[in-house]
């Protein structure tokens, strides 16, 4: 049943990554003003997705141990890189991908060890 847990955690990372893309999209006009943030569609939706991503994660944790499932949360670093390329016209290069790979390894070591 661990596979169900993994799939739910992966779903959570996809929702969270989309949330951070929306936060970036909405951040252009943002300032240190709560009311202004609440009027910004992108930011409200981004924060909502950010918060909602916790739900499949918590349900996923019922299907396996935290140390097995937590490393999968670092997949969000891959999704965010891909989304930044596609929707924000940002460029990835070998060094940046290498950095993402190291972070994935590091998170797995910390949570698995």
């Amino acid at each position: 049943m661990i596979i169900v847990g993994i799939l739910l955690v992966v779903l959570a990372t996809l929702i969270g990554a989309s949330g951070s893309l929306l936060l970036k999209k909405g951040s252009g006009t943002a300032s240190f003003n709560i009311m202004q943030i609440l009027r910004n569609k992108y930011l409200v939706l981004g924060l909502l997705l950010y918060g909602l991503s916790i739900i499949p994660f918590i349900i996923g944790l019922k299907f396996g141990p935290l140390s097995m499932l937590y490393p999968f949360t670092s997949l969000s670093y891959i999704w965010v890189s891909l989304l930044s390329m596609k929707y924000l016209n940002e460029k990835m290069n070998l060094l940046k991908w290498l950095g993402v790979l190291f972070i994935l390894t590091g998170v797995s070591l910390i949570s698995g060890g």
């Binding site: 290069n93 060094l95 190291f102 590091g106 060890g113």
Partner: peptide, 23 residues
Amino acid sequence: FKWAGIFVIFLGISCIGFGSKSR
């Protein structure tokens, strides 16, 4: 394992930093 993870994460964000700079 945790110490190794911390070290590798440092390495990772350094790569990201230098990767964005080198461009």
